[in-house]
Design a protein around this nucleic acid. Structure first.
Length: 401
DNA sequence: CGAGATTCATGTGAAGTATACCTTTAGGCTTAA
DNA sequence: AAGCCTAAAGGTATACTTCACATGAATCTCGTA
């Protein structure tokens, strides 16, 4: 028997760990959402007028990542739509995550995407934004009912394009005759509304809800709830859930992270044919998640950005100390010529470095070195251990020797 | 010695350019009457 | 004459470049104690 079929045999013989894995995936909407009863009640109270074909107040929701904002809204909405359908009340909803690059990170792209959700084909470029607004508008009008527009991670978008966009959206209602639009904004940044123009602020947050972080005990409940469904019986070692919850609680009570941790631990245990999930797997999973996230991010970056990042890593390795834009740019130019890429200007590279900072791959801060000018002080915020691997990945991706 | 002035290296904003793509329109060709 | 296709014209969004000015503390300068 060859090694490969041996492997498959072994895989099949190993005890499967998962019962239904999708329960742990982030797209899953559970039947019960523990410790969010209050918030669900609030959301439904605010949205309830929709069932009488009245326009609910605009709603603004804050809370750190993984505090159940998205899921609560989605669940409540799902229920509301069910009833609306039964009673034949014309209510529709559009959900859009504004963080997705190339989908909703400019005004044009946002409106275009929304129109697409309503079933119109909009080209990626070429149309006047005004025109796209008109299309969106006419689609809305065609609905002759209520539309609930959920904009997730709205802070990301507004930071980029400014708050006029929101003003326009809130004012659309005044123009609509047959339909009505309610906005539900979801933001991870609790400070977000302070950036907003007061007019926008008052019309967007007619109602506000704050989602507090989960504490360790609550996280445990959530994890147990899902683990029961997801795993076969008895595959979880004692203390795994507790440890998992503790990990996540340390990081501002991020439930999404906790669930991911549990899922990946399971996958690791299964792959190793261990048959049981132990604390050892948890640690492994934590590393793996972090790594995968960065890998993904780096891999999907445009070539120019990759070169910039590579240069940063290179310079950083050579000089352990503080590194500056100038040095990075020099190295960047060198690499560009080496791989036959036309280098971007320093102006642009400066912006790219800023983008990386936003993404959290690096840490960059503008400092003044007095007589010696003014620059950004850059350091990677990738764990030491994964840095070489990222470098290798980039080397390969860029076709460097 | 200390208050201003100077200086450096790059941040940053505004305006311009290249590219890729869109719609409209006018002309040219085909077709059918 | 009507219908259909094509290519040019005129327009837009986005990523990038160019230009010009802004920054801010270390360092320099120079008047004064």
């Amino acid at each position: 028997m060859c090694a490969l079929s041996n492997f498959f045999e072994k895989y099949l013989n190993a005890e499967p760990i998962f019962e239904t894995k999708k329960v742990l995936q982030s797209s899953y909407t559970p039947e019960v959402i523990p410790h969010r009863e209050k918030q669900m009640e609030d959301v439904s109270r605010i949205l309830a007028p929709a069932l009488r074909a009245d326009k609910p107040s605009n709603l603004f929701i804050y809370g750190k990542t993984g505090t159940g904002k998205t899921i609560t809204v989605r669940y409540t909405l799902q229920e509301l739509l069910k009833i609306a359908k039964k009673r034949k009340v014309p209510v529709e909803s559009i959900y859009l995550n504004c963080k997705l690059k190339k989908v909703a990170d400019t005004e044009y792209r946002l409106i275009a995407q929304l129109s697409r959700e309503l079933g119109r084909d909009i080209p990626a470029t070429g149309l006047p934004t005004e025109e796209v607004y008109k299309i969106f508008f006419s689609e809305l009008e065609k609905r002759e009912g209520l539309i609930l527009l959920i904009l997730d991670e709205i802070d990301q978008l507004i930071k980029k394009v400014g708050d006029e966009l929101l003003y326009t959206l809130t004012r659309i209602n005044a123009e609509l005759e047959n339909s009505q639009l309610s906005l539900i904004g979801i933001s991870n940044d609790t400070q977000f509304t302070t950036y907003l123009d007061s007019r926008v602020k008052s019309s967007l947050s007619e109602e506000e809800l704050l989602f507090p972080p989960y504490n360790a005990l609550q996280l445990q409940d959530i994890l147990k709830e899902r683990a029961d469904l997801a795993f076969k019986e008895g595959v979880l070692d004692d203390g795994v859930i507790e440890k998992c919850a503790a990990y996540a609680a340390r990081e501002h009570g991020d439930a999404r992270r906790a669930l991911e941790l549990l899922r990946v631990s399971g996958e690791l245990a299964e792959r190793n044919g261990d048959g049981k999930i132990s604390i050892k797997h948890l640690d492994e999973a934590e590393n793996k998640i972090e790594r995968d996230k960065i890998y993904d991010l780096v891999e999907t970056q445009p070539k120019q950005h990759q070169v910039v990042l590579y240069s940063i890593l290179l310079v950083c390795e050579k000089r352990k100390e503080r590194i500056f834009t100038g040095e990075v740019y020099e190295v960047y130019k060198e690499i560009c010529t080496k791989i036959g890429l036309r280098p971007l200007t320093q102006r642009r590279v400066s912006d790219i470095i800023g983008e990386f900072d936003m993404l959290g791959i690096i840490y960059a801060r503008v400092i003044s070195k007095g007589r010696y000018g003014r620059t950004r002080e850059i350091s990677p915020s990738i764990p030491e251990t994964t840095q070489p691997k990222i470098k290798k990945l980039l080397t390969k991706d860029l076709g460097l020797t």
